[in-house]
Design a protein around this nucleic acid. Structure first.
Lengths: 232, 232
DNA sequence: GAGGTTATCGATCAAGAGTCGAAAACACAG
DNA sequence: CTGTGTTTTCGACTCTTGATCGATAACCTC
């Protein structure tokens, strides 16, 4: 797939990288692949690569990602920031534009042999500054989760409130009250009851209502807008 | 691809740009200079230029800005985003990383002849995609003003509440109640009374208390954190 | 002083969010 | 079929934040 030797040096020292996050087993994971060659052989790296000579940034990150995971599984993709420290990659000056990618909690895409999921709380040795990018991505995710509808990108198409709360718990890193979560997301019209109910597990319990997200595109929820325009 | 004049071709097609904003006469203005040469001759452009071969992004934007304004006047500088559409600049493929810069309302820095302030509500013909960057910068500013202490970068070192409210009005684009603003910023401990009072203008009026910002580095104010951790 | 002007403070109202416990709806065991 | 345990759901309550408005304070000029 990737040529091992004699890669032509790209004329533009610019690369794109993505921290693709997913909640798996109640913990946020990031997609990474293990480098086989120098530099940073053995370390884990984020998917990405050099920007093509006449390529859009968005097109490039999608193309690079496609080498590691089925991009159709991606529920969200947004730009994070750019890093240009000359020494961030030894031996070559390259500016990196990083992205945050999300995959719904129920998906389990096929991955190449060199690629696996890693808990972001227990990262292996990461190549270059990729560890910093993962932290920036996780921070962006948890903050945006509170004032946007970004949950749609983490949750499966259908879910109960308990399942959704577990996802939020993992992504936010602290406890989430189910009652509170339900009221907030309902009031914001972020989620809609489908009418169906889930069957209780063994041992019983009241069957849970099944919800879905109302929209699947990022939207900011006004409510917490402070210093807002007059209400008249 | 080949440059029209004999400027040395940078080895990396990467530039940095800054939208430097300031509140002047109750309106947000942006610093721009008028291009004399093709491409986009006559159009107004943001300060910026090509990234040096071994230059940090932050160092580069400061260096470029220094050509148009005294960077010591800058009260804040943060990265906005990167744009890489191949056609964003005709004749040359260049990725741009944009920045938001702020200058306190009372400063009036010396500017080169080709450089002036423009109201962002009434922009002249902007070169390339620079108009989009100005809008992104203004949006970032108004949003961050509500949930951070970014006001410190817009306000002069000392101010009365009326003066501060006028600055906020301009940056937010809507009315701001003085009483409300005072209470919110005091409760958040963003501002501190200096003890001094301003002399009333002609016609009298109660002398206004003089405040200053408590801190001069960006800090997020928690209060509006939704789905916040349990209060116990 | 009297009237006009501006700033400040307090009381009140409304809305969003966190907490808690009771009730609802199920499975399973006896 | 009934009682027990489990999970979900709903409502009442409290707390905090922010918006609104009127009253008071402190100054000017005449």
């Amino acid at each position: 797939m990737v040529p091992l030797v004699s890669t032509p040096v790209p004329q533009c020292g610019h690369e794109v990288l993505a921290a693709v996050l997913q909640v798996r087993d109640d913990a946020v994971h990031v997609l990474a692949w293990q480098r086989a060659m120098a530099p940073a052989a053995g370390a884990w790296a984020l998917p990405g690569g050099d920007l093509g000579p006449d390529e859009h940034l968005n097109a490039s990150i999608r193309r690079q990602l496609a080498q590691k995971v089925d991009v159709r599984e991606l529920s969200h993709l947004e730009q994070l920031d750019s890093r240009g420290r000359p020494e961030r990659v030894p031996g070559r000056r390259v500016v990196a534009t990083s992205y945050l990618g999300l995959i719904p909690a129920d998906a389990d895409p096929r991955l190449p042999d060199d690629t696996t999921w890693h808990r972001i709380t227990d990262l292996p040795t990461m190549a270059f500054d990729h560890g910093l990018i993962v932290r920036a991505a996780a921070g962006r995710l948890s903050r945006k989760l509170t004032y946007t509808n970004l949950g749609f990108a983490l949750a499966p198409p259908q879910f109960t409130m308990s399942e959704l709360a577990r996802i939020y718990r993992a992504a936010l890193g602290h406890d989430v009250d189910v009652t509170n979560l339900q009221r907030i997301l309902l009031r914001r019209a972020q989620i809609t009851p489908t009418g169906a109910t889930a069957r209780p597990g063994p041992g019983g319990g009241r069957p849970a209502a099944i919800y879905r997200f109302t929209a699947y595109e990022l939207a900011v929820t006004d409510p917490f807008a402070v210093l807002s325009p007059p209400r008249t």
